[in-house]
Structure formats: structure tokens, C-alpha cells
Nucleic acid binder design. Structure first.
Length: 569
RNA sequence: UGGGGGGUGGCCAAGCGGCAAGGCAGCGGCCUUUGGAGCCGAAGAUCGCAGGUUCGAAUCCUGCCCUCCCAGCCA
């Protein structure tokens, strides 16, 4: 993969910079101190290929790959593909794309749980021989009944004490496809009265005559998560197997299998998954949004999916920064989405070239400007980074400015253009509004202004000041564009995400047409990110063509004027 | 009313017995050819509650309250 500044995580161990601290770092550092695993750090990111990755996964990805980077270890990418009924190649492809996009590289360590089906089968036979596993012919319903409840102990299956020979023969039949789906399962023989339901003889294998994306029809028995995951970790020499809190109750089982087999024992460590305000991050709800058409797809720029935020224009470095800042802990929490937006702005402020674009155009005619003159004004590409250079922006007699930058009868604190008032056009001239033209409905359709030739570039030789600087675009030279404005998907900061009809923000998407942008944007490519001065950060959408430019508003600039207006209410 | 977790300013989160970091949000001000950015400043915490141990407790002990997870042949 290509390594660019934009896409390379900076986690090299350094002395002074404040290293992230968390209970996981503490565990790892203690392990290194005591020489556990020879001081090695090996992690993995283990997605199930049954959906698209979202910002919550990014937290796990940054954590796992980040720890490996910090401690000179390795992080594998492993697909947990043990359920052919739900998994598809499409998801595998999107996941690898997304992890790479986030800036992480698993080199030659791309693995699949299905790589280990053979080994898992042998180990299962080993457990059967040790009297630690048995084939159970109870139906699914019966197994549930026998499992007991949270407060009542379970009871043992009548098949629990079959002989080793019988179990071996039956398991062989399961593997050979001689039995029907659901006819029986292989179970671990542990403890039916354990207060931890996971220990009440958990199912290890079920029969599924299903085509697997990678192993095809080679297998008709598939391992359950608990049986596959820890053993896969062990095979790969994982030292710290990091997962989310809901697997905490599975840890005793994870440890039990590894101990019975006498194989390398990774340490499972659980952390709290990410929740974000104004959105949902559960796979089920995200699927509904897509399948029921509330959004245009998995990559709709309003979606919290990696593909969605990528299309929206969020830089991967901003996501990484966000993941560093939210920390890792065991307390369930919901992070304010404003922190994510802050990280996006901070990255884009430094890296996005500035351009001018008018979203809601108001025509301005400079009456004392020569009819056919065109001047090329010098504009700085990024005041935060001189290395980004400068460009020329054409100026002429007829311009467009932002409609909201003019008020006929301005309130107190409104510094922008008004009748008789002088303001600066960015990188161009001071202009003064001399007349307001309206249509028959009284709506302002054009402004007449004069300019001061002495102020070329934006400074007055006599030292006089103006209170506002407006962005603008030359009417003759401007490119027409469509601009899509986005807002939070859900109105409520803590949506249940079930009653979509009422919970979704009806204004989460606003499409603006007939916007005008400066001509330099003609060569912009898909994904290119810009700051439209005074408005926000935008990128070129996938739908954009040279004939029909389309921009997404990634995130607006902070807007203190809007705040003042709010306070006035 | 079984088991396993968690409760530190509005939101995250450090802290690991010596006297509550930091970030986001919010609030002032400075600066500014983006009302952006940047800079400066102030404010904000009975550390879930109640006891106890200790010279000293957010940190240790006890009890209580609240909250999250678990009864898939999903992961």
C-alpha cells in the first residue's frame, strides 16, 4: 500500500510525547516487565465478514494496530468466518479496503479462521478422546430448555455420557455429511450448573450444509465462535486478545479450551465499545438504514461506516486522532460527536487547500469596474502552510457573493455588507454597496457596488479598516456545482434507533444546486478535500463529473456568528 | 431474587494511600485579509451513597444504590 503523510499513523515510540495510557497499556507493560511471552506483543483485528466496518470498529483497529506499533509488535488481520450463512466475499473486500484506508498494514498476515478448520477438527477429536466433548442429539429447543435460566441451573443431556467410541463415530459422520443440518451438535462437557451460562456445555460445532466463501463445500460442520476464536488466537501466537465487554463472560470458556488443549494461551482483555451521539452503531440498525432506503447505501456520507465517512471527506488521520483521544476503558460511554468533528476540522485546517465557493449566490455588479477587464488576483492556498503556495483567482465586473453576507437592514453585530457599507472581497478589493435591486416580490436580486482601485489585493494604502471579508467568485469564470450539506442522522443525541420514522433528522441532507465555485476546481479529483473559505470543508463526491461537479460538505467551520444569532433568540 | 462488569466536572478520561492531569463542549479577552485558525484567561468535581481503617482515602475494607452484559446450533 502507498504510504503518504495523510495515511501513516505516527506511533513511533518517542520519549517526551505523552504516550496514551490505559489499563491495557498497563497490562502489556507489566507483561513485558515480567518477561511474559518473551516480551512479545502480538494482537489481531478479527472482524466477521458479515457487514461493513464503522467508526466503532475503527476504535478497535486503532487500538490493536496501535498497540503493536507502540510496542514493536505485530497485528494480524483475521476474518472470523465461521458462519457461512451470513458471510460474503463483498464484506471481506470492503473490510480490507477500510483497514488499509485507515492507514494500517497487516503485511503478509492476512488470516481466516477457516484456515484453521482442519486443526480445529483434530483438536475436537482430541477433546472427545479426553472425554471432554460429546455429540448431543437434543434439538435446539431442548438444548435451550436443558440449559436452565439465569437463576436456575441447567441439567445434563441424556446423551452426555456416550462412550468415546460412539462420540468419535458420530462426530466423523457429522464431518462426512452423513447427517442433516440441526440433527446433532458437538458440545464441550463442562458444567451444566455453572452460574456462567457459557460454561453449561457450550456447542462447539453445528452441522451446516452451506457453501463457505473460502472453503466451498469442503466442510459441512462449522465451529462456533467460542471454539474457533481462542484457538485461532493461539495458533497465531496472539499475546493479547482484545475484544469488547460483551465477551467478558466468555473468558472462562476461552481459557478452558486453551488449557484443555495445552496450547499457547493468549490473554483475553475486554474494553468498552464506542458509542457516539446522534447516530447508531449497531450492525442491525445500520443494515435497516440501508435496506429500508433511509440512506443511499453503506457509503452514504451520513453513515458512521468507514466507507461513509470516507466518502464524506473525513481524513483517516482524523479518525486515528479521534481514537487516540477517546481513550480506552471499561466503562460504557457515549462520546460527543463534536469531538469527532473537532478532530476532522483540526486535520483539515492544516491540510486542506482553501478555495472560494458561493453556495447561495447573490449577483454583484461593480459599477466603476471596467466592463471587460479581468484581473488575476493572488490567493494563498493555505495560511497554515506556506508550502502549499498560491494561485490566481479571476476577478471581473460581475461577481457572486453569498446571499447571507448581505443584509439590507443589518442588526447590531452584523459586520458584513449592507447599503452604504464597505467590506473587503478576499484577496481582491474593498467594495461599497451603493444600491439594492429587488424583484417585484421585494426580494433582493442584485447589488450595485463600487470598488476602490487603491485597495487591490485587499489592503487600503490609507490604512482604513473594514470589519468583514467576504468570499466571492467571478460570474464569468465560475463553475456551477451541486453541493450536498449533511447534518446528524438522528435528532436525539441518544437515539434508540428503532423508530426510524420519527427519530431520523429530516434535514440530514440538503442538496444545493446552482452553486458557484472558483475555476481552479475544474481539475479536482474524486475525494479531493478543500476548505471553502468561511464555510467549511468539502470534498469531491464520487458522483461528481466534469460536467456536473458535486461536493460534499464534510464539516462546517465553527461559526461564531451563528452562535451570536442563537443567543439573540 | 444467578454470574460477570461499570459508576471521577455537560461529554470522554488520567489517577494505583499524600493531598483531583488532559481533551471536547461552554464562557471571557487578544489577534486576524476566513466572525476560521491561533493565543491568553477564568469557571466548572460533595471522585454513586453510607460507614470503617489510616496522621492522611477517588485510591484499602464493609454495606447499600444505580447501571450495563449473559439464557443463538450468531459473533
Amino acid at each position: 500500500m502507498s504510504k503518504t503523510t495523510d495515511n501513516t499513523p505516527d506511533k513511533a515510540p518517542d520519549e517526551e510525547a505523552s504516550r496514551p495510557s490505559s489499563f491495557i497499556h498497563d497490562i502489556i507493560e507489566e507483561d513485558r516487565r515480567t518477561g511474559k511471552n518473551d516480551g512479545r506483543v502480538q494482537t489481531r483485528f478479527p472482524p466477521e465478514p458479515n457487514g461493513y466496518l464503522h467508526i466503532g470498529h475503527a476504535k478497535s483497529i486503532c487500538l490493536n494496530f496501535g498497540l503493536a506499533l507502540e510496542y514493536g509488535g505485530k497485528c494480524n488481520l483475521r476474518f472470523d468466518d465461521t458462519n457461512p450463512l451470513k458471510e460474503e466475499q463483498e464484506y471481506i473486500d470492503s473490510i480490507t479496503t477500510d483497514v488499509h484506508w485507515l492507514g494500517f498494514d497487516w503485511e503478509d498476515r492476512l488470516f481466516y479462521a477457516s484456515d484453521y478448520f482442519g486443526q480445529l477438527y483434530e483438536w475436537a477429536v482430541q477433546l472427545i478422546k479426553a472425554g471432554k466433548a460429546y455429540v448431543d442429539h437434543l434439538t435446539a429447543d431442548e438444548i435451550r430448555e436443558y440449559r436452565g435460566t439465569l437463576t436456575e441451573p441447567g441439567k445434563e443431556s441424556p446423551y452426555r455420557n456416550r462412550s468415546v467410541e460412539e462420540n468419535l463415530a458420530l462426530f466423523e459422520q457429522m464431518k462426512n455429511g452423513e447427517l442433516e443440518d440441526g440433527e446433532c451438535v458437538l458440545r464441550a462437557k463442562i458444567d451444566m450448573v455453572s452460574p456462567n451460562l457459557n460454561m453449561r456445555d457450550p456447542v462447539m460445532y453445528r452441522i451446516l450444509h452451506a457453501e463457505h466463501p473460502r472453503t466451498g463445500d469442503k466442510w459441512c460442520i462449522y465451529p462456533m465462535y467460542d471454539w474457533a476464536h481462542g484457538q485461532s488466537d493461539s495458533i497465531e501466537g496472539i499475546t493479547h486478545s482484545i475484544c469488547t465487554l460483551e465477551f467478558e463472560d466468555h473468558r472462562p470458556l476461552y481459557d478452558w479450551f486453551v488449557e484443555q488443549l495445552g496450547i499457547h494461551a493468549p490473554q483475553q482483555i475486554e474494553f468498552a465499545r464506542l458509542n457516539l451521539t446522534h447516530t447508531v452503531l449497531s450492525k442491525r440498525r445500520l443494515i435497516r438504514l440501508v435496506k429500508e432506503g433511509y440512506v443511499s447505501g453503506w457509503d452514504d456520507p451520513r453513515m458512521p461506516t468507514i466507507s461513509g465517512i470516507r466518502r464524506r471527506g473525513y481524513p483517516p488521520a482524523a479518525i486515528r486522532d479521534f481514537c487516540d483521544r477517546i481513550g480506552v476503558a471499561r466503562a460504557n460511554s457515549t462520546v460527543d460527536i463534536q469531538l469527532l468533528e473537532h478532530c476532522v476540522r483540526q486535520d483539515l485546517n492544516l491540510h486542506a487547500p482553501r478555495v472560494m465557493g458561493v453556495l447561495d449566490p447573490l449577483r454583484v455588479v461593480i459599477e466603476n469596474y471596467p466592463d471587460d477587464l479581468v484581473e488575476e488576483m493572488d490567493a494563498i492556498n493555505n495560511p497554515e502552510d506556506p508550502e502549499m503556495g498560491a494561485r490566481k483567482v479571476p476577478f471581473s465586473k460581475v461577481l457572486y457573493i453569498e446571499r447571507e453576507d448581505f443584509m439590507e437592514d443589518p442588526p447590531k453585530k452584523f459586520y458584513r455588507l449592507a447599503p452604504g457599507r464597505e467590506v473587503r472581497l478576499r484577496y481582491a478589493y474593498f467594495i461599497t454597496c451603493t444600491d439594492v435591486i429587488k424583484d417585484e416580490n421585494g426580494e433582493v436580486i442584485e447589488l450595485r457596488c463600487t470598488y476602490d482601485p487603491e485597495t487591490r489585493g485587499g489592503d487600503a494604502p490609507d490604512g482604513r479598516r473594514v470589519k468583514a471579508t467576504l468570499h466571492w467568485v467571478s460570474a464569468r469564470h465560475a463553475l456551477e456545482a451541486e453541493v450536498r450539506l449533511y447534518d446528524h442522522l438522528f435528532i436525539d443525541p441518544f437515539p434508540a434507533g428503532d423508530d426510524l420514522e420519527n427519530e431520523l433528522n429530516p434535514d440530514s441532507l440538503e442538496v444545493l444546486t446552482h452553486c458557484y465555485v472558483e475555476p481552479s476546481l475544474a481539475d479536482a479529483n474524486h475525494g479531493d478535500r478543500f476548505q471553502f473559505e468561511r464555510q467549511g470543508y468539502f470534498n469531491v463526491d464520487l458522483d461528481s463529473t466534469p460536467e456536473n461537479l458535486v461536493f460534499n460538505r464534510t464539516v462546517p467551520l465553527r461559526d461564531t456568528w451563528a452562535k451570536i444569532q442563537q443567543q439573540a433568540k
